[in-house]
């Protein structure tokens, strides 16, 4: 599972949901793997405002990954500043003229780093632990198991 999913996951136990300590889940004994993926700038831009940044920093430091900046990057930081934006944007008024020519954007180093952490770093084996109740969810072959045992439903 890619690290981005941890940004959406809490403890499955209903009584934990209301306790802020249940988010994020804390990785323990995690085996990480880097799986190369194509950088998706549109997606990064879309997901950036929805990220729980503070929690992402916590997970990242618990996994021993390079420290993330204290504040989340701004959407503009994801794109390499372009020197000649108007050259490519010279829109030929095609039929209808409504065609807004897509300017080819280059992802910045910030975008690449974010992509590396969120979409290329995967937890293959290990546990995810709830900070509220301490319940451990096992991750096997990259698939976490959130089924609750009989006494906890």
């Amino acid at each position: 599972m890619k690290l981005l999913t941890l940004n959406f996951l809490t403890c499955a136990i209903k009584t934990c949901k209301t306790n802020p300590a249940s988010f994020p889940l804390h990785p323990r004994d995690a085996e990480l793997e880097i799986q190369e993926a194509d950088l998706n700038l549109t997606f990064l831009k879309n997901i950036l405002p929805r990220l729980m940044w503070e929690e992402l920093r916590v997970i990242s430091s618990e996994l021993g990954l390079p420290e993330l900046p204290a504040t989340p990057p701004a959407p503009a930081d994801l794109v390499e500043p372009s020197n000649t934006p108007l050259d490519t944007a010279e829109v030929t008024l095609a039929e209808g003229g409504a065609e807004a020519q897509e300017v080819e954007e280059t992802p910045s180093q910030t975008a690449k780093d974010l992509h590396r952490i969120l979409l290329e770093t995967c937890i293959q084996e290990g546990k995810l632990v709830c900070g509220s109740c301490g319940h451990e969810y096992a991750v096997k072959e990259g698939v976490a198991n959130f089924l609750l045992p009989g006494h906890l439903v």
Binding site: M1, K2, T5, A12, N145, L147
Partner: peptide, 8 residues
Amino acid sequence: YLGSFVSD
């Protein structure tokens, strides 16, 4: 593909 998990 972000991955998947087992849950109800």
